[in-house]
């Protein structure tokens, strides 16, 4: 994150030139001006583990889910959590929520195994500045997905993102067993100009 702040102060004085025979009253005017730059600030994510489903822990900007697979079906467990980001933008701006991989993908894939899935789709719905948006990570292919919304006013408060995985959701069909391993995606939240 880079913040640039610029402030100006101008001082102008209109001074009466000294006159040999000054008149009274004299008048002096001082005008102060400033320019507020367009800035946005964005805090680190906060996640309430207690209110989440199937979340094990949060460390820094990493949400560690509990085992994503169900013990009986071996397929995806329902999972959800809410992340909030303290934010402020002092101008009309854009919020973009992005997924790096379009789903929770098995890290270091081990090739095709018929009858198994290696990615999990999810939805991330979000709200900010009176606007709502959503990002659908389909897990159809391992590629970046962006979901921008324009906010036509300055805004301050929390960006709220609700992350949700449906039970049984996989890229191999509903209820298909997940290959064992580590699954991951990275979400990016970005504020900027429209």
């Amino acid at each position: 994150m880079r913040l640039t702040r610029t402030a100006l102060l101008a001082a102008v004085a209109l001074l009466a030139a000294p006159l040999a025979f000054a008149q009274v009253p004299q008048k002096a005017t001082i005008t102060a001006t400033g320019s507020a730059a367009q800035i946005c600030t964005l805090g680190a994510p906060q996640v309430n583990v207690g209110a989440a489903t199937n979340v094990q822990s949060v460390s820094g900007s990493t949400v560690m889910l509990s085992d994503l697979a169900d013990d009986n079906s071996f397929s995806t467990k329902a999972t959800d959590f809410t992340a909030t980001f303290a934010a402020m933008c002092n101008f009309n701006h854009k919020l973009t929520v992005s997924s790096d991989y379009n789903g929770l993908w098995l890290v270091g894939g081990i090739g095709t195994h018929p009858g198994f899935a290696d990615a999990v789709p999810y939805q991330a719905t979000f709200s900010w500045g009176g606007q709502n948006g959503s990002l659908t990570a389909t897990a159809a292919s391992e590629s970046e997905v962006d979901s921008p919304i324009d906010v036509n006013q300055p805004a301050a408060g929390n960006i709220v993102i609700h992350f949700e995985v449906d039970q049984g959701a996989t890229n191999g069909g509903n209820g298909v067993p997940l290959v064992a391993g580590t699954y991951q995606d990275i979400l990016f939240v970005t504020l900027g100009a429209q």
Binding site: Q38, L187, F188, V189
Partner: peptide, 17 residues
């Protein structure tokens, strides 16, 4: 005028199956 700042935050979601 200052260029608009474009702050970004990352959120990694991970699970071990």
């Amino acid at each position: 005028p200052a260029l608009c700042a474009a702050p970004s935050q990352m959120l990694t979601v991970q699970s071990s199956v």
